[in-house]
């Protein structure tokens, strides 16, 4: 995994598998404090304390098709390799929250990558899940909210390629406007 946006895409798959109906993705860039944080919160089925303890162990997985589970381990590594931290809070009643911090200017800090594409793919492939994506930089804040999108497009599918193209460009332009990292 070479880009932070791909980690986000991957970690959100866990939320989807946990039957979440609401997923919040928050990215905060603070170059002045040399800090970048990514927080992913869902209201899915959460993890038991035992599962939680093993969650970042690459040899632990809840699935049957294979014996490794690298998603969280790789994200943890991506944070820790640039002097950051990785934290999971999970409650079978409330869901899971994953928070990572990284040194913004660390040489090992992965690039953000195509975050607009990732958010667009997630929203379009999971029309029944409410996604809220917030991206903050010193220049401002952009919020993408699928409920607002659904309200506008009404009976047109969010998976319509024309809508997808539009959404992706809308996110890209808004991010460019607040000078997000690439």
């Amino acid at each position: 995994m070479k880009e932070l946006s791909l980690h986000i895409l991957d970690i959100v798959q866990n939320s989807i598998a946990a039957k979440a109906t609401r997923i919040d993705i928050k990215v905060v860039e603070n170059p002045d404090k040399n800090l970048l944080t990514i927080t992913i919160t869902d209201n899915g089925s959460g993890m038991s304390p035992t599962a939680l303890k093993q969650a970042t162990d690459p040899y632990y997985t809840s699935r049957q098709t294979r014996k490794v589970g690298l998603g969280l381990s790789l994200f943890k590594q991506a944070a820790e390799q640039c002097g950051g931290r990785f934290k999971i809070i999970s409650d079978p009643e409330a869901g899971t929250k994953i928070k990572t911090s990284m040194q913004y200017k660390h040489i090992n800090r992965q690039p953000m990558g195509d975050i607009a594409g990732v958010i667009t793919l997630l929203a379009s492939s999971n029309p029944d899940i409410y996604f809220r994506y917030e991206h903050k930089t010193p220049s401002g804040k952009y919020v993408f909210d699928t409920l607002k999108i659904m309200k506008v497009i009404e009976n047109i599918s969010i998976a319509d390629p024309n809508i997808l193209r539009f959404i992706r460009e809308m996110i890209q332009e808004n991010l460019r406007n607040i000078n997000t990292t690439t």
Binding site: V152, I153, F166, M170, E173, N174
Partner: peptide
């Protein structure tokens, strides 16, 4: 600020 796409355009 440059012109960006909005929900109205959508």
């Amino acid at each position: 600020m440059t012109k960006v796409k909005t929900l109205a355009d959508l």
